[in-house]
Design a protein around this nucleic acid. Structure first.
Lengths: 142, 142
DNA sequence: TTATTGAACGAGAATCATTATAAACGATTG
DNA sequence: CAATCGTTTATAATGATTCTCGTTCAATAA
């Protein structure tokens, strides 16, 4: 805990973020709970240390941390359902900023190597792969 | 259009779906508009042919088509935000059914080959890759 | 240390996408 | 023709997320 404490102060300084108690605790809650967590579950953890915290504060700080690169977003798609009628094997190139999706053809992946690394029982029925980055126009805007 | 007409009747027969006018038109709207579309935009397209259609019908049928495999879902994550404090390079294995995410290590991808296929201007700042399939427990339930 | 100021916080309202419910409809079968 | 079953419609409900606004706090300089 001491470590993330220091770590957060450094990161905050580097990104010009004010170090508030709430931010510190939100950050520590994410780091302490390994895995991929929802705002609600982080809120629950933070509440144990700051009972008066508000859910909006958790959301605000998670967004802020993601934007600064202190955290990664594990759900980088558009927030509404998208469908694709193309059932041919192809992969997706997703822009982390504007959420646009482009198709790419070709075998990008070494399937043999991948299957060796898969955890037992995971079934790659239709190996759709998505690669994330910045699209041309978002990169230009930066 | 004639083609998707036939195509849909065949697909519907194969999956035991009733062929209703609304379904036909929803399916055709998705296929006709190449790309990755939201329920709202499909609704708009369908309305031009069936002004009385309801948005719920569009949602119902998109879900149905996805479950049957007539369409692919382009937003296969949990519907709530997830964050990850692990900034080390790693990739994700996502279960298309329960939306769980596991980490995998290793260079899965041939970056040289990938960069050759990238459209101009796309920036792979942090090449996070996600591979979709069925996790062990969802496969067991099938 | 204290005063100042802009940023951050908390509470709750508002918004938006999606799903559930119930009534009406339509096709099919007896 | 009546009964039935799945589909559609309209609308209500839900759930996640963002916004608003009054209050409080952290950073900075005196």
């Amino acid at each position: 805990m001491r470590l993330t404490h220091e770590q957060f102060r450094e990161l905050a300084a580097k990104h010009g973020l004010a170090v508030t108690h709430q931010r510190q605790v939100v950050y520590e809650a994410v780091i302490a709970s390994h895995g991929h967590h929802s705002p609600e579950s982080i809120y629950a953890a933070v509440r144990r240390r700051i009972p008066s915290v508000s859910l909006a504060t958790v959301y605000n700080n998670l967004r802020l941390f993601i934007e600064c690169g202190l955290l990664r977003e594990v759900t980088p798609h558009a927030s509404t359902l998208r469908v694709d009628g193309n059932l041919e094997p192809h992969h997706h190139l997703v822009c982390s900023r504007c959420k646009s999706v482009q198709d790419i053809e070709g075998d990008l992946i070494d399937l043999k190597r991948l299957s060796r690394q898969l955890p037992a029982g995971f079934d790659l029925t239709q190996p759709l792969i998505e690669v994330f980055g910045l699209c041309r126009s978002c990169r230009a805007k930066q």
